[in-house]
């Protein structure tokens, strides 16, 4: 089970901030989330949204291990 975290406007779109999702790959996790909630799927694929696995930014697909922390980060606003 990967631990999924949503930040900024993404958690407003989804109505949750954190949950467990059972997916072997990041691509499968995206498909699973957008299957459940098309608006969230679209927001996650939106311009400037980055993904961090265990707090490291990744690009493209990646394998997820049990307990991997997957964070979806919309464009950062600065403080």
């Amino acid at each position: 089970m990967a631990r999924v975290l949503l930040f900024g406007r993404l958690s407003d779109v989804a109505g949750w901030r954190e949950r467990q999702v059972d997916s072997p790959f990041l691509s499968a996790l995206r498909a699973e989330l957008s299957g459940e909630d098309a608006a969230l799927g679209e927001a996650l694929a939106g311009k400037g949204v980055q993904v961090a696995l265990d707090q490291v930014i990744v690009r493209g697909d990646a394998a997820l291990n049990a307990g991997t922390e997957v964070a979806f980060l919309p464009p950062m606003s600065g403080g």
């Binding site: 930040f7 900024g8 406007r9 407003d12 980060l73 950062m76 606003s77 600065g78 403080g79």
Partner: peptide, 20 residues
Amino acid sequence: LKSKAPFWKKEQGPGGARWV
């Protein structure tokens, strides 16, 4: 810090909240 730091900012005004 004002432009690139990993923060997400919401302003709450009399008419509601908006992400900045």
